[in-house]
Design a protein around this nucleic acid. Sequence first.
DNA 1: AACAATGGCAACCGCACCAAT
DNA 2: AATTGGTGCGGTTGCCATTGT
Length: 197
Amino acid sequence: MRKPCCEKTEMTKGAWSKQEDQKLIDYIQKHGEGCWNSLPKVAGLRRCGKSCRLRWINYLRPDLKRGSFGEDEEDLIVRLHTLLGNRWSLIAGRLPGRTDNEVKNYWNSHLKKKLPIMDTTLLPPNKPHASNHAPNGKHVKYFNDIDDDVDEVIDDEVSTDSVNTGNVNSNTDRISSCLAPPDLNLDLTLSIMSSTS
DNA sequence: AACAATGGCAACCGCACCAAT
DNA sequence: AATTGGTGCGGTTGCCATTGT
């Protein structure tokens, strides 16, 4: 077992102060992202590198789109989750200005409870090492490989849906329709796996 | 008004991958 | 080929605000 990245007892934990935020922003504006482990020392922060990275990616990045999710984004999350399961980083990659943490939180706190009680066989596996996982557990690389194909499907579905959703009244109905769209090929992942292996 | 329950979000933790050596 | 350090990801926790009793 590897040692924890930051076992130093003097490391600060918990909520970030404005001063800390500013130090991190200043440092990254000067030096760019990367070298997270050495960053705190150079930037004068008493935080571990992982904490700095998380703070930057999830909160401080200038391209972040704060605020509530739009209906289009909601649809896309549901669709992508249907295809990919809990691959939050991949899902977030399809949502400009959104982070994996934000998408994950939004799913857990908003979308999950909107979903109708349904046949769980329609749901994807939560872990990449479930039935349709990539060989050797290299799920990230594997999912990146199919990324472009998913992109095509999602683009098609969203453009179609953006026309259709005008007639759908409730969120629940809208999400239900997303979960079982008549022409969405939910076997895509599997078929790509077999075709690329 | 006071307290308890609930929900939402930020942050932490542990594990896994990858590149360098 | 094995080891190591850096990084990324997903699950979980804890805090705080809001709502209900």
